[in-house]
Amino acid sequence: MQSYFLWTLVVLALLGTSLVSGAKDADHLVCQLPEGSLQDLQENLEARLNGTEGQLQDIQNTLVSLQESLRTLLAEKENRNPEPAAIQNIPPKFERILDRYFYIEHNLEVDWASAADICRKINGHLAALKNEEELAAIQLKLRNDWYHLGISDEGHKGEFTSVASGKPAVFLKWNDESPENAGKCVQLKNGGFMGDYYCSERVNFICQLDTDV
């Protein structure tokens, strides 16, 4: 799109040069032509001027159209990947993944309760995911086999709740063995599936910054 604007500027510059050159030529002709030809010359110059004004109007219309196209493209980009809700003082360990902030712990392996406590200490919450797109984006960043998520059916068998929002989990993608209800805490497998396992199992974990999901 930048090339359109550059070409437009070039055209305007050429037109400006043409107008200046035309004015100089007109002065020269006025001095040399007999009086009877001045009217013809004036009509000729007016015709050229009218043609130039038409060209300038076409260029202006093109610029307006380009501006509208640019606004449309920017709006579409913003709608596809909106800015996350304003969060003050984002902790240094968190990174933006799509429209939310996460911290993925790759080294430390702890039980589910310890993972939830660590997330709280860094001003976050043990994470829950909201859709397939978010799962795919996080999946690309995983290094190990299993990660604790902030989803559990503790106290409500079979009803899996997000610890961050306190609401039912909005997205679950079970493996073939789950939910088996033997375990209470949900883990994410590096492979894109979730399972419910014992909360005492020591694995890595994922934190989120918001409480929306």
Rank of each mutant, 00 (worst) to 15 (best):
3 S>K: 10
5 F>V: 11
6 L>Y: 11
7 W>T: 14
9 L>N: 12
11 V>N: 13
11 V>M: 13
15 L>R: 12
16 G>C: 11
21 S>F: 14
21 S>T: 15
21 S>G: 15
24 K>S: 06
24 K>M: 10
27 D>V: 08
28 H>E: 14
30 V>W: 08
37 S>M: 05
40 D>P: 05
41 L>Q: 05
42 Q>L: 12
44 N>G: 15
44 N>S: 15
46 E>H: 15
46 E>F: 15
47 A>Y: 10
47 A>T: 13
48 R>C: 09
48 R>M: 12
49 L>E: 09
52 T>I: 07
52 T>L: 07
54 G>M: 12
58 D>W: 11
59 I>E: 06
59 I>K: 04
61 N>G: 02
61 N>V: 03
63 L>R: 01
65 S>N: 00
70 L>R: 13
71 R>D: 09
72 T>Y: 14
74 L>S: 09
78 E>G: 07
79 N>F: 13
80 R>A: 11
80 R>I: 12
81 N>D: 14
82 P>L: 12
84 P>G: 15
86 A>W: 04
87 I>C: 08
90 I>W: 01
91 P>N: 04
92 P>N: 02
93 K>I: 03
94 F>T: 07
94 F>W: 02
94 F>V: 06
96 R>Q: 14
98 L>Y: 01
100 R>Q: 10
105 E>D: 08
108 L>W: 01
108 L>R: 06
110 V>L: 09
114 S>Y: 08
115 A>H: 01
120 R>C: 03
120 R>G: 04
120 R>N: 07
121 K>T: 14
125 H>G: 08
128 A>G: 13
130 K>T: 08
134 E>M: 09
135 L>K: 15
136 A>N: 14
139 Q>A: 04
142 L>G: 08
142 L>P: 09
142 L>H: 07
143 R>P: 03
146 W>M: 08
147 Y>I: 11
150 G>P: 03
151 I>P: 03
152 S>K: 12
153 D>A: 02
155 G>S: 02
155 G>M: 01
155 G>L: 02
156 H>Q: 04
157 K>A: 09
158 G>E: 11
159 E>Y: 00
160 F>D: 02
161 T>R: 12
164 A>G: 06
166 G>E: 01
167 K>G: 00
170 V>I: 11
171 F>S: 00
172 L>I: 09
172 L>W: 03
177 E>K: 14
178 S>F: 07
181 N>E: 09
184 K>N: 10
184 K>C: 03
186 V>P: 03
189 K>D: 10
189 K>F: 06
189 K>W: 07
189 K>S: 10
190 N>W: 00
191 G>F: 04
191 G>I: 05
192 G>S: 04
193 F>G: 05
195 G>I: 02
198 Y>E: 02
201 E>H: 13
206 I>H: 04
208 Q>V: 12
210 D>C: 03
211 T>A: 10
212 D>A: 10
212 D>P: 06
